[in-house]
């Protein structure tokens, strides 16, 4: 089957029941989305499908239609997305393993809510577990990214 991932067409031959995550990682070698739980309980595998955040560890690849965007496709060449740049500026990551998912959820949030409140952030990000406890910096980075996007717009 063909998938459009990060603007590229890829051709893979998975069992349609295989979760999108493993199709991306094992078959297409796209390792940006991470495996954390396999039951959509931690958010590390989050990717966007047509702009909607989904937990790729639980989504059968056979039913996937639309453009997939992973953490690897956010930057425009060497220019980081506003969310990535804010993450860098706020020095958010510790171990970094969950951050691909955090950044994808934050990206989805900011696509719909340009200037999120603390409550908006809580409501959007509760599905993304961070074991290092980077939450205070994640919150700061989302606000910074919002300001950056508004300034760029």
């Amino acid at each position: 089957m063909r998938l459009t991932v990060d603007g590229r067409e890829i051709e893979i031959d998975p069992d349609p029941e295989m979760p999108l995550l493993w199709a991306l990682r094992d078959l297409a070698g796209i390792t940006g989305p991470k495996f954390g739980c396999g039951i959509a309980a931690c958010g590390a595998c989050t990717v966007l499908v047509d702009g909607v955040p989904v937990r790729s560890c639980s989504l059968p690849v056979g039913g996937v239609e639309g453009d997939i965007v992973t953490i690897e496709g956010l930057a425009d060449g060497d220019t980081l997305s506003a969310v990535q740049q804010a993450w860098l500026d706020e020095q958010v990551a510790q171990c970094g393993y969950c951050q691909a998912g955090q950044i994808m959820s934050a990206t989805a949030l900011l696509d719909e809510v340009s200037d999120p409140t603390d409550e908006d952030i809580d409501n959007a990000m509760g599905g993304n577990l961070c074991r290092c406890g980077t939450y205070p910096r994640i919150r700061a980075a989302i606000k910074r990214a919002a300001a950056m996007k508004l300034a760029r717009a």
Partner: peptide, 16 residues
């Protein structure tokens, strides 16, 4: 909510 829809995790069929 934006960023965390029901359909972020709940798809057309049950996870097996």
């Amino acid at each position: 909510n934006p960023g965390l829809r029901c359909t972020t995790c709940h798809f057309e069929s049950n996870s097996n």
